[in-house]
Computed example of a mutant assay.
Amino acid sequence: MNESDRENATELHRRRRLDEEMLDAYDEELEMEVDDRLQEGGGFELTDDERVERRMYFRELIRLQGELVKMQDWIASTGHRLVVIFEGRDAAGKGGVIKRITQRLNPRMCRVAALPAPSNRERTQWYFQRYVAHLPAGGEMVLFDRSWYNRAGVERVMNFCTDDEYEEFFRSVPEFEKMLARSGVQIVKYWFSITDEEQEIRFQSRIEDPLKQWKLSPMDLESRRRWEAYTQAKEVMLQRSHIPEAPWWVVQGVDKKRARLNCISHLLSQVPYHEVEHPTITLPARVHHPDYIRHPVPENMIIPEKY
């Protein structure tokens, strides 16, 4: 194979990966099989094996989401408190897993905490203070889409904290998490791991897809440039904050669908839930009043039926 053939093969592989990333975005929004005709002319031509894998993925996802509902019921009935932390590089797939976990759960019992950059006032507080306000009460689970580990990651790499603040974080975080565990809060921590090549593909997909460009921030671009610094920060973080009361678990995230299923399955294995019996629900008969009159809605209040 000459140099030109190698370049063509590399570009074909790259284009294929971008197509797969785009197709996964459709799945992400629809959570159903995309009709094969939809892909005609769009570059999305699935092999028979890929079609089988997609069917298996959706079938298993629905099954796992059914178990999540059972876990939610158990948490509500026992007053259990669960914190799940999702960390990882930008575009590692954290948001996709969180979306699948919460998709069929009660938002009053399962909340997502995705905190913005701290305000000027919050920067003067105890570092963990703004996160404490989002911890679960009895019967709740909270998913942190990034967490207090920002200090060990982005703040360290981007020089948003001093060396003293960084060291104080690692002195404090084990004690903070042990304190939560002693008070009955279960903490499960996930790090989503992807390769250099995979992050490049996902970033490039965001650049090319107008529906996903909002996901790409200047901080993401800078994180791409500082890949090695993030690797070093991650290694230190895993080593210095991996404790028995709140261990780290690494999710291999290159294959998004497998990562979602593996993470959800593992989370279910960490909680000692069982199916909770519910009383039989009987729909009451509607009460009819002979003097009830339903008044018509004014035509100018009804939205146009374009579809």
Rank of each mutant, 00 (worst) to 15 (best):
E167K: 12
E67P: 01
Q252Y: 09
F86N: 01
E197P: 00
L23R: 07
A91V: 00
E31G: 07
A113C: 13
F86T: 08
L143N: 05
D48N: 11
D27K: 09
H13S: 13
I98C: 08
R151L: 00
Q239N: 13
T102K: 11
T47V: 00
C161T: 02
P247E: 05
G138S: 13
N150R: 02
L82Y: 08
K94W: 02
L18Q: 02
G41C: 06
R104H: 15
P174C: 07
A181E: 04
Y190P: 00
M109S: 14
Y26D: 10
L180V: 08
P174W: 03
V83A: 11
Q232C: 07
F160P: 11
H13A: 15
L23S: 07
P218Q: 01
I207K: 09
L18G: 02
C161L: 03
I303R: 10
S172V: 05
T280V: 12
L267Q: 00
H295N: 12
V276K: 04
D255T: 02
I75M: 10
E168A: 14
A152G: 12
S77F: 02
A92D: 01
V271G: 07
D27I: 06
K257G: 10
E175M: 10
I75T: 11
M71V: 05
F58W: 06
L23V: 04
G43L: 02
T282R: 03
Q204F: 00
E305Q: 15
L261I: 12
E29S: 07
V271K: 05
I101G: 08
A233S: 04
D145W: 07
R111P: 09
W191K: 09
E45L: 13
G88D: 00
T124P: 06
R108I: 13
A137C: 07
I303S: 14
A25D: 08
F144M: 06
R100Y: 11
D291P: 08
W214G: 13
R17W: 01
